[in-house]
Amino acid sequence: MKTQARIGRVAVVVAGLLVWELLTRFDLIDSDFVSTPIAVGVAFTEMLRNSEVLSALASTGGNILLAFIIGTVIGVIAGTVMGLSKTLWQAYSAPLLFLMSTPKSIFLPIFILLCGIGSTSAVVFGAFEAAVFVTINVAAGMALVEDRHMKVARAFKASWAQTILAVVLPSALPGIFTALWFGIRHAFIGVLIAELWASSDGVGGLIRVYAEQLHTDKTLALMLAVTFLAIIAGTIWNHLETRLTRWRQSSAAGAATTTATS
């Protein structure tokens, strides 16, 4: 079944590429606007030797990392505090959930006004986007901490720090992992969107420049590269999560974990 699914998936992609190539070959659609699969492939290999692209990738990667770190630190702290305090959760969960479902790009102009055009607004916007999702997921993760385990910590005289380390964090770990994953994803999205709109450097800026100059092949190749990076990051993350929460597989009582979405 697995191989069949794989063959089916590849077949659709290959067919799509074939149709695309043929349509442009017979001039049914304009290759200036949509390029061709082969041209994109060529652009992709050329791109890997192009210092402009490589430095853009490095700069965007750095921005994403920075946005992820800032957003996650803020989010973990805010989420922990919210998760531990019922009052704060009641006060701020609704606005946060609202913020989570709103496209945050509508706030981008504010960030550009405050931080100017360039890397800074990309990082700050990415951090903002990440922080919202991390906060909600960490707070939801804290809800996984069971009273009976807290009672054990109290009865066996754990200090505050020991309670956090031995009970709260391990209980909340699945939520925290989900949170960190959302942190990476949204730092990624945030930085790229901000660069697309308001930066001349970085991958986002480059995609905009290529698109405006009708270098469709290069634009698509760059998008392909970004997609690969996202897939690689996701795969690494999955492996890490499986390793660190291994006890869950052996535990019959392992609760369902994944919390908020998108």
């Binding site: 009976r148 054990v152 009970v167 391990p170 006890w247």
Partner: peptide, 8 residues
């Protein structure tokens, strides 16, 4: 309810 810590 025993209350063992399942991750340990």
């Amino acid at each position: 309810d025993y209350s063992l810590l399942p991750w340990k």
